[in-house]
Each structure stands twice: as C-alpha cells, then as structure tokens.
C-alpha cells in the first residue's frame, strides 16, 4: 500500500510538471527570446529553467496557477539575463552597472515612512525597480525560498544571491526615500 501511495504522490507531481510545460512553456520561450533574441539560446534558457523547475517541483506543486506562472517567468528571465551577460562579457561588450549610492543597510528603516500610504508607494515603486531586483525580492520574501534555493533556481552562486538581495533591498529603500523626498547622507 505504501508503495502505491508513493507512486500516486509522484504521479501528481509528474502531472504538475507536464501541466507547467503545457500551460507556460510558450510564455517562458517568449520571455527568453525577448531577452536573448536568439532561438537556440532561448531554447537553452527554457530547457535550463525546466531542469530547475523539475528539481523543485515538490515545493512548486502547491502553488496556484498565477503564482506558478509568475515563478516560471522569473526563473527563465533571470537565466536568460545571466546568459545574455555571459555572452556580452565574452565579447567584452558588457559593462557592469555602476554602483548606486546606497544608504547604509544597517540603519533603521525610517518609521515616518510608514503610514497608510506605504502600500500604494511600494506597489508603484516596485515597478520602477530593476527587474532582477524585483524578481529576487519576490523569490526571497514572497515565495519564501532560501538563498540556496534561489541560487539553484537561477543557476547563480549563493554569493550572487546575497549581493543581489542586498542591492534589491537598498534599491527599494532608496526609491521609497526618494519618494518621500528624504535623502540621508
């Protein structure tokens, strides 16, 4: 009986992977192609994303449709961006973003910023964030993945995850401070 139960559990997860492929592979390919502008590279990005999705299917299978849809897009987008950067680096064409001026992260979050308006401001500012930063904030704080999981999903190192998270948090803080008109030096 236990063997049969185990099989059923796996069967539902396998079906989930197939559902993801059937429902979202076109979205994924479109996102990858828009970044990479190359059919072959876009295919590679989608394949790579699927490998990571399969490895994390146990966690993913509990999500609702939209949550899965957004997640697979985040994964394939970031994989595509990484591939794009690698190609450009190889061609010596990629210029790293200049470091932004960040407030010290250890300083307290200004409580004056917290009022009834905060949610609207966050909602608006998140659109202005760099896509990579918004993606990693979603993976960490909305989907609840660990740094290790994020690294595996996006094919990057854990150090990269830490750096991006730091920059993402600072970027959002910065945006909220700018909105408020306060700049701390």
């Amino acid at each position: 009986m236990l063997i049969l139960f185990d099989t059923i559990t796996d069967e539902s997860q396998r079906k989930k992977v197939e559902d993801i492929y059937v429902n979202y592979s076109k979205d994924m390919f479109k996102v990858a192609y828009n970044i990479l502008n190359d059919y072959q590279l876009a295919q590679d990005a989608v394949q790579s994303a699927f490998i990571n999705i399969i490895n994390y299917i146990e966690k993913i299978s509990d999500y609702d449709c939209n949550k899965i849809r957004a997640l697979v897009v985040i994964i394939v987008r970031n994989i595509s961006i990484n591939m794009y950067k690698q190609i450009k680096r190889q061609k010596n064409l990629f210029i790293e973003d200049a470091d932004e001026f960040f407030h010290d992260d250890s300083e307290p979050f200004d409580e004056k910023l917290i009022n009834g308006d905060i949610f609207r401001r966050v909602s608006e500012k998140v659109k202005e964030l760099k896509t990579e930063y918004a993606d990693i904030i979603s993976l960490k704080y909305y989907y609840g993945y660990s740094n290790k999981d994020i690294a595996n999903l996006l094919n990057i190192t854990q150090d990269n995850v830490r750096i991006r998270l730091y920059r993402a948090r600072q970027s959002l803080k910065n945006a909220l401070y700018e909105y408020k008109g306060d700049v701390k030096i």
Partner: peptide, 13 residues
Amino acid sequence: LLEYAGACHVNNI
C-alpha cells in the same frame, strides 16, 4: 513590506 513588494511584482508579471 518586501513580501508585499514581491506580491505586487508577481501581480505585475
């Protein structure tokens, strides 16, 4: 707030 930002971003996607 970050969690909320993540939810907003997913919604935007």
